[in-house]
Design a protein around this nucleic acid. Structure first.
Lengths: 150, 150
DNA sequence: CAGTATCCGGTGCGATACTG
DNA sequence: CAGTATCGCACCGGATACTG
């Protein structure tokens, strides 16, 4: 039998924590677009077709969570610009996006409209699980395991 | 035209599609608990500390999305029970959960309370990205092409 | 360009109570 | 055990208008 009740109970569960930060309708889409090269407020608003009144607090939340960072840029002679960039923590969301892409392409009809590629060779990218002993881990061989001590 | 839920669901971006199915505060936690061995309505309600009036439509949505399946069974002499199990499609959400665990453990304070292990050797599990040419793909070497309008 | 302010309707969610 | 019914509030998110 897999994990026990007491196991899953903990609010220190990293899934709970991650979902509470990222589990809404916009955050991961914003990350996707920033990763895809959109860095400015109005670019994001118009590409996502999201109201600016909604985008603003979303960006603030992601900055607050340490996923994005905001920088004002002023090129000589030009006006001020604000830029949103992924922090290192934000950059490490990439496997989550890749896993969502993998799943969506396989299990949701009509979702073939986005490609992930390796910058080195332009081949398509997929996600795998592996264990510390070097084995590939298929979905059915994963178990939720809780260290002793709650 | 602004984005409604309907237009999000008709998007061809697999991230958008996946997020529109899974991107709320409960769905992935329900999947985690079912994966962890909880299969009955009241078990899930009390463990997740979610109102039954909220759980009920959530489960229906996951069943509708083909992620869970519901089965009534009646052991001889016992009363009826309803069980929720992961479909094959639901099983394949595992890499998404694993990626969320990886990220949460590294970037969200106080989220060390859950671990993933390989059933074969009990070693910790992590996610990796690979390309079709067989290369390991680090986060910085992923290129994402976001088509306009999605 | 990068936001805020205001209004307002829809929905998420908890609490409580009731049903088969 | 497995739900449904109802209430009420908080928050999400769209439209529009305004600011530096």
């Amino acid at each position: 039998m897999p994990a026990t009740l007491a196991t899953l109970e903990s609010s220190r569960c990293p899934i709970t924590r991650s979902v509470s930060l990222l589990g809404d309708r916009w955050s991961l889409l914003i990350v996707r677009d920033v990763l895809g090269g959109l860095h400015r407020f109005d670019e994001l608003a118009s590409h996502l077709k999201i109201s600016r009144a909604v985008l603003s607090p979303r960006l603030a939340g992601l900055v607050d969570a340490g996923i994005l960072e905001r920088a004002d840029y002023r090129e000589p002679g030009a006006r001020r610009r604000a830029e949103y960039r992924l922090t290192e923590s934000g950059q490490e969301l990439v496997p989550i996006l890749a896993a969502l892409v993998d799943w969506g392409r396989r299990h949701v009809a009509g979702s073939a409209g986005l490609r992930l590629a390796h910058t080195g060779c332009l081949s398509p990218v997929h996600v795998e699980m592996g264990c510390a002993a070097g084995h590939a881990v298929p979905n059915a061989q994963l178990r939720i395991d809780v260290p002793p001590g709650h």
